[in-house]
């Protein structure tokens, strides 16, 4: 009974789960190296950065917004972390300040998105440029190496499980919990569903929206710390274009850009799906020139499958209401 409440969440991510499964079966048959423990583990580690950010982005999109500055936030946070660590040598300090900065940058996005009723696409495009510019200014576009020893978030493991995977699971669980069990989660879906109704019900629209963007900022910060630990340092092209990968993962996961509903789990599976495409191409030793084409085709197929189920649903809906209409007029 309890889980029944989230029936529609299950429906949201079913398409991507099936697509992922199909892709896995295909790759298992096509490449002997694919279905190994080590490869599965590295797929999950690779997916962690996108997946963690996709959780944050799902919140923003459910609330009826969008944030295209998260790649820039990731870059800015990584710069702050690297600079601060190099300057002070204190890992906890650099970590703490970075995460707090992530929260602040996200909150700024949320505040701008709600305060000025411009579309958040425009406001976050502006903050994208600002955050990226500030980071370039901060670092002088220089690469800053981060010692491997402190890259625990990216390279460490706990009880034999790589830390990025643990973080991804933790963020997913927290993400699902927040949206399903808390008042905030319900309010967020409500605000995304109908802002007018939310206003009429005097829900705290401002607080809820800012919190969603703030979570987006925080997840981008966390993802950034994982990424630079893994890459071995800060590079100035980090995070470029990442927002589109993240949004793609969220949409593949069954979350509609119109807001009001969505699936955290779907977004995480969507991120894994995207990594699987590249992993598969690598496994098959594909020609480097087919990568983009294959990526595009697989994405298109996934989206078409998702839309087909959507169309079927709406057809039924129209049929139902048409039958009702026939009752009133003739």
């Amino acid at each position: 009974m309890k889980l029944n409440n989230y029936k529609f969440f299950e429906q949201n991510w079913s398409a991507i789960a099936v697509a992922t499964l199909v892709l896995c079966v295909f790759l298992t048959i096509a490449s002997p190296a694919f279905m190994s423990f080590a490869n599965m583990q590295s797929v999950l580690v690779q997916a962690s950065v996108t997946a963690i950010m996709a959780v944050g982005m799902t919140y923003i999109i459910i609330g009826g917004g969008i944030d295209i500055s998260i790649g820039a936030i990731l870059f800015f946070i990584s710069s702050v972390f690297a600079e601060l660590f190099v300057a002070t040598g204190s890992y906890p300090l650099a970590l703490g300040v970075s995460l707090i900065t992530g929260v602040l940058l996200g909150a700024v996005n949320g505040f701008l998105a709600i305060k000025f009723k411009v579309t958040p696409l425009i406001t976050t495009l502006a903050t994208y440029t600002i955050y990226r510019g500030m980071a370039i200014h901060l670092t002088g576009a220089q690469n800053i190496p981060v010692p491997r020893e402190i890259g625990y978030l990216g390279n460490g493991s706990f009880l034999g499980i790589p830390v990025p995977i643990l973080l991804m699971v933790l963020v997913t669980i927290l993400g699902v919990y927040l949206i399903q069990k808390t008042r905030f989660g319900l309010y967020l879906r409500a605000v995304g569903s109908s802002e007018e109704s939310a206003h009429e019900s005097s829900l705290p629209i401002m607080r809820v929206t800012v919190l969603a963007y703030l979570i987006g900022g925080l997840t981008a910060a966390l993802a950034g710390l994982i990424l630079i630990a893994r890459v071995g340092g800060l590079q100035s092209d980090i995070g470029i274009g990442l927002e589109f990968t993240v949004i793609a993962a969220v949409i593949l996961g069954g979350t509609k850009l119109s807001g009001g509903s969505g699936s955290i789990l779907g977004s995480v599976i969507g991120a894994i799906f995207l990594v699987l495409i590249d992993n598969g191409l690598n496994m098959l030793n594909a020609s480097p020139y087919v990568y983009d084409t294959v990526r595009g085709i697989v994405l298109l197929v996934a989206v078409i499958v998702d839309r087909l189920s959507e169309v079927r649903k709406s057809r039924e809906l129209i049929k139902n209401s048409a039958m009702k209409m026939r009752g009133t007029t003739s």
């Binding site: 009974m1 008042r183 319900l186 939310a198 509903s261």
Partner: peptide, 30 residues
């Protein structure tokens, strides 16, 4: 003034949710 993408139960109770802010009581809501 309803929320289209929320369930009937959620719509009915959204203004006065049972349980705490961090642990909404869905059983009670339903």
């Amino acid at each position: 003034s309803l929320f289209p993408s929320l369930t009937v139960a959620e719509n009915l109770c959204i203004n006065d949710l049972p349980g705490s802010a961090l642990n909404v009581d869905w059983h009670e809501t339903q």
